[in-house]
Structures are given as structure tokens and as C-alpha cells.
Simulated scan of single mutants.
Amino acid sequence: MTNKHVEFTLTLEHLWQFSLQFYGVREVKEACLSLQNNYHGNVNLLLLLKWLDEQQVIFLEQDWPILQGCIMRSETLLSSYRELRRHLKLQVNDALYREALQFELQLEKQQQSDLVDCINSLTLVNNDGEPLTLRYCRQLGGEHLQHAFSMPFPDNHPL
């Protein structure tokens, strides 16, 4: 890996749109849900890592804990809400359940905002090594899921 610093400013809207498109691929969605439900991974973090992979940039190794730490508060809230929503599914009508899903999406977007703020504060360099998504899947013990995240994203325009 070269140590050439890269200047990127990621916006919440760009990451959100990227995430909606990438997550919209059936195989990606299934792998994301497996990463979340079976390996306790964070889908928003994975989507940010995929965006970074597409830009061929990486943050410094010592910044992994910073990035993961910036979502701890929102992850606790999201996990609790997700569990509540799952319990409500059988007890509320479809309209109320859809509202619960919409609120969860708002929480997801807030978490992405936290990630965007965090990544924009870190030093980014060119990534000549392994994709970040592979490293994250490996950390969680779900390396076999990487195939779904290695598909190239069609809108590969850097900001």
C-alpha cells in the first residue's frame, strides 16, 4: 500500500443513495442480513467500507477502533429498536408495522451520518491491498460472505 494521502469528502446523501442501490441487490441484502444476524456485523459500516473499496481508498490501521466506536451509541439504539419491531410484527397492523420500519430507516440514516462524520475526520490513503469489506468479514468470522460484497458497483464515480 502506498502512503499517498487521498482527499475525499463523503456526504450523507451520497452514502445513503449508494447504500440503497447496493443493498437493493438481492444477494447483497441477504449477505448483509446474514452478517448482521449471524455474525453481529454492522450493515452501515459494511456499506461504508464498500464505498471506500469502490474509491480504492483505506483509512489507517490504527483508525479501525475509532470508526467502530463512532457507531456504538447508535448501534445499541438500533439493535434495541430492531428487536422491538420484530416483536411488534405479529401484534400490529401492516400500516403501523410499515411506520415502524420507516422509523428504523431513519435510525439507520442517522448511523450513516455518524459514520460519514467519522470517516471525513480520518486520513485516507490509496488501498493497494485487500478490500475493507473482506477484512471486516474476516474479523467477524464471515469471510464466505465476501463474494456478495465483491461485486463491482455500477456507479463508480468518486466524489
Score class of each variant (00 low, 15 high):
Glu30Gln: 02
Trp51Arg: 13
Tyr23Asn: 05
Ser34Gln: 14
Glu13His: 11
Asp128Cys: 11
Leu35Ala: 04
Ser150Leu: 02
Cys118Met: 05
Gly69Glu: 00
Ile71Lys: 03
Leu145Ala: 06
Ser113Val: 08
Glu30Thr: 09
Pro65Val: 08
Glu61Thr: 09
Tyr39Trp: 03
Glu30Phe: 08
Tyr136Val: 07
Asp114Asn: 01
Thr11Arg: 04
Phe153Ser: 06
Gln139Pro: 01
Gln36Arg: 01
Glu143Pro: 06
Leu78His: 10
Ile71Arg: 00
Leu132Phe: 07
Asn120Pro: 08
Val43Pro: 00
Ser34Arg: 06
Phe18Trp: 15
His144Ile: 07
Thr9Arg: 15
Glu30Leu: 15
Tyr39Ser: 05
Val28Gln: 09
Glu75Val: 12
Pro158Ile: 09
Leu49Lys: 05
Gln36Asn: 04
Thr11Lys: 07
Pro131Leu: 11
Ser113Leu: 12
Leu15Gln: 10
Lys50Ile: 06
Glu143Gly: 00
Asn127Leu: 08
Trp64Asp: 01
Cys32His: 07
Lys109Arg: 15
Asp53Gly: 07
Lys4Pro: 08
Asp155His: 14
Leu46Pro: 00
Val43Lys: 08
Arg73Gly: 11
Pro65Lys: 06
Tyr97Ala: 01
Val6Gln: 08
Gln112Thr: 08
Gln110Asn: 15
His157Asn: 12
Ala148Ile: 04
Leu159Cys: 11
Glu104Leu: 04
His87Arg: 15
Glu54Ala: 15
Gln36Phe: 01
Leu48Ser: 05
Leu159Asn: 14
Glu104Ala: 09
Asn127Cys: 09
Asn44Pro: 10
Val28Lys: 00
Gln111Leu: 11
Leu33Gln: 10
Gly129Tyr: 06
Thr133Pro: 06
Glu13Trp: 14
Phe103Met: 04
Asn44Arg: 01
Ser74Glu: 15
Gln139Ser: 05
Leu60Ile: 13
Leu12Pro: 12
Ala95Lys: 03
Leu20Trp: 09
Tyr97Phe: 06
Arg86Tyr: 05
His40Lys: 02
Tyr39Glu: 00
Asp94Thr: 07
Leu20Ala: 11
Tyr81Pro: 06
Thr76Val: 13
Ile119Thr: 04
Pro65Gln: 04
Thr2Arg: 13
Asp63Lys: 02
Tyr81Arg: 09
Cys32Ala: 04
Leu77Met: 15
Glu99Arg: 00
Thr133Glu: 01
Leu78Val: 12
Leu115Val: 06
Gly41Val: 01
Gln17Val: 10
His40Ser: 08
